[in-house]
Design a protein around this nucleic acid. Sequence first.
DNA 1: AATTAGACAGCTTGCAGAAC
DNA 2: GTTCTGCAAGCTGTCTAATT
Length: 342
Amino acid sequence: MRRIGLLEKTGEKIAYYRKKNGFSRQYLADNICDESTLYRIEKGQQLPRLDILKEICMKLNIPIEYILSDNDEAELISYVQKFKRLCRESLYQLDFITLQYHYEEAKNFSNNNPLLNNRQFLRFLSWIEAVLYHKRDQNPEKAEILLRKLIQNGKIINEIDINITNSLGLLLLEQNKLKEALRLFISSYKALENSPYIEDKSLFPRVAYNLACLYYENHRDSECFDICYRLEYYLQSNHLFYCAGEVRYLLGILHKRKNDLDIAQQYFDEAVNIFSFERKYAFCSQSLHSLAEIHYLKGDSRNGELHVNKALSIADSINDQEISNAIKEEIKHTIKQYASRL
DNA sequence: AATTAGACAGCTTGCAGAAC
DNA sequence: GTTCTGCAAGCTGTCTAATT
């Protein structure tokens, strides 16, 4: 009896999502299975093989859980996915007010839906709570206590473990606890390498970039290069823009350190273009500053001057006066330094 | 008792073709 | 063009008898 129900439900759901996407059976079945097979699956005459079901779901752009779970669960899965996506967007924009709104709404929702009280979702909520303590309340101590509580036995296995560990690493980095931060980023990076499926495509760039920065600080250049090149490849192959400018900038300063001035110049150039497109004025000004230094080092003082002036003018666009002034001071220091050499 | 091999049933699949 | 059906092939799990 149970099998009959499963056959019908599976078929009905596939047919529903196929029609919702405006696909014909022929189109959906193409390169996956025979049209007649799909027909019989939809009509509840047979169950699809797992590999076929997986490909059907991919083409329909739905998680396989939508088909395998019952209707109530499917709605909840959809809600959780939407919530996670919105949180990621708010985090990317550093919009902690919106993040708090999503967090509170999800908390209320989970209180009213016992099905949502599963461990993974509650851990995700607690992670967001810790981020809010840290970034919104400027209370790193409280955030650290919660994050440490969320890392059980130091085990980093799934996506949420990696997010928690990465956040704790960043927090420790701010407190200058570099050794422990490095250990956490390395563990997160290794866990990511061993995770076959990660939903959040920005997780790898976030963790890898943090680790690369620490390697740079510790003068572990070859490891830093390795991660940066991997990151570049990952961003390109996943059509991602996330931290693309930062990676170019890091590669620029790495090559500058190696005295490969021409390659460094190329990376700084790319970083400037990406930051100016993203309107990240502080980063853009810093990249122009670095570019100017390269020109000075190559003996091209005319271009050096041109770029420091550009860097100064972009620094004026930075909203945070403190940051703006600090960057301008650094630029002026460079101007003095190279002017005295002429 | 545990393992292996063969027979068998049930199921999914793709192909071909009919019906609408 | 889309939907539906019949059929043969192939895969998998279960049962049973033989063997170790």
